[in-house]
Every structure is written in C-alpha cells, then in structure tokens.
C-alpha cells in the first residue's frame, strides 16, 4: 500500500473539523458536505487525512470525532498546531522526511532530494509536494528556505517519542508552550549540536 499523503491543505482539513464540531461531532458525510453546498468528493481529501491523523473515524458513511479530534477542535490555534505536529510525526511520510532532515548535512534537503524522498513513498505530483511542505511548515516541523530552495529542519526540544502517543490532556495549558518554543531554532540551520539543544530544553518546556 502506498504511503498516505495529504491531498487537502491544513486549513481545509481544519475547516472540516470545525464543520463537524458545529454538527455536534458526529454526522453523515453526505450531510456534512451538503451543509457547505459541496459534493462529497470535495470533502473526502480532508476527511481522509483527518482519519489518517486519528482525528476522526469514518464508518458506514458517518464521521465521528476521536477523543483527540474533539480535543483539537476545542483548543486554541496554537494548541491545535501542537496536536497536528504530534500526529504528523506519526505518519510514515513525515517520519521519513524528518529522519532524512535529521541525518542530512546542515539538516537541509534540496528540492530535488525532497522530491526523491516523496516519490519513494507516494509518487505524487508537484503540487502534492508543495502541499506536503506546507503541512510541515504549518505544523512547524520544518521550514522552507525560498532563496535557496531547500527544506530546513526546525529544531525544537526533542519531546520524548513516546509522548506522541499521549492521551488528550485535561487541562490544556501545557500545550501552549509548544507555540512559544517553536521560534527558538527557526533561523538557525547551522550550529545545531543536539546535546546543546537537549540540555536547553528542560528549561523551555518547564
């Protein structure tokens, strides 16, 4: 089976979740589409990727929030991004991209390298690659350096891998720290000693 990749933009998928929320978190897919005067196939890309990210579950033409999806849609813009980031990291596509970025010199991938990696997993068209890049940027996993046409890893406190599997927190105040720390490594592709980063993170996340 080919690796799943997003066919909708992050904003479109968020729109679907917001829409589902206004339907009290459970609705027929057809009625959901109908609410925005859309055809079903126009919301399917968003629905499909939301399901891949474990935010919704679709059974017999009916879509229902997962606990995490419910939690996401009730969060602030920043909290939503933090959850998206964790969920993206669990997909094969983004795991592959991040692993490549982490091992690449200067933690950068050129357009060609990026295209090769993506085509190994999904073989999508050029606009799909751009969309994948935009998902990663939106979730603050990496940035794109237009001047040098290359993808650059965003360094952040390496939250424990197992943390990706976290249950929906009850409070929600902790997740806002993700937004605050997101800027730290933004324009610093060089000078990225992992040990130095690791030592700095306890104070940032605390």
């Amino acid at each position: 089976m080919p690796t799943a990749y997003p066919k909708a933009s992050p904003t479109e998928m968020m729109g679907l979740l917001v829409l589902l929320n206004s339907h009290k978190g459970a609705e027929d897919v057809a009625l959901l589409a109908d609410d925005l005067d859309l055809e079903i196939d126009e919301i399917l890309p968003s629905l499909e990727f939301a399901e891949i990210l474990d935010l919704v579950k679709v059974t017999d033409g009916r879509v229902v929030f997962s606990d995490l999806g419910k939690h996401l849609v009730q969060g602030t813009i920043r909290e939503r991004k933090t959850i998206l980031r964790d969920q993206l990291k669990r997909t094969t596509l983004f795991r592959t991209l991040l692993r490549a970025l982490e091992s690449a010199p200067e933690h950068c991938l050129s357009d060609e390298e990026l295209g090769q990696i993506v085509s190994l997993t999904t073989a999508p068209a050029e606009e799909a690659v751009q969309n994948i890049v935009n998902w990663g940027r939106y979730a603050d996993l990496f940035r794109y350096d237009t001047d040098h046409r290359r993808l650059v890893l965003v360094h952040r406190p390496a939250t424990a891998r197992s943390g990706a599997n976290r249950p929906p927190p009850s409070g929600g105040s902790a997740s806002s720290a993700g937004g605050a720390t997101s800027k730290t490594g933004r324009s610093d592709p060089a000078g990225s000693d992992p040990a130095a980063r690791a030592s700095g993170l306890a104070s940032v996340t605390a």
Partner: peptide
C-alpha cells in the same frame, strides 16, 4: 505570527501560500 498560526511561514512570500494562509 504565532497567534495566527503562521510560524513556519515567516520567510515565505505570498505566492507560496494558499488563499487561507
């Protein structure tokens, strides 16, 4: 930029962005 959820796009030019962004 952070409040609106645009982190990661600071250095992007408008042409790189979707309408929503």
């Amino acid at each position: 930029i952070s409040v609106i959820g645009l982190d990661g796009f600071q250095e992007a030019y408008p042409r790189e962005l979707s309408g929503g962004m």
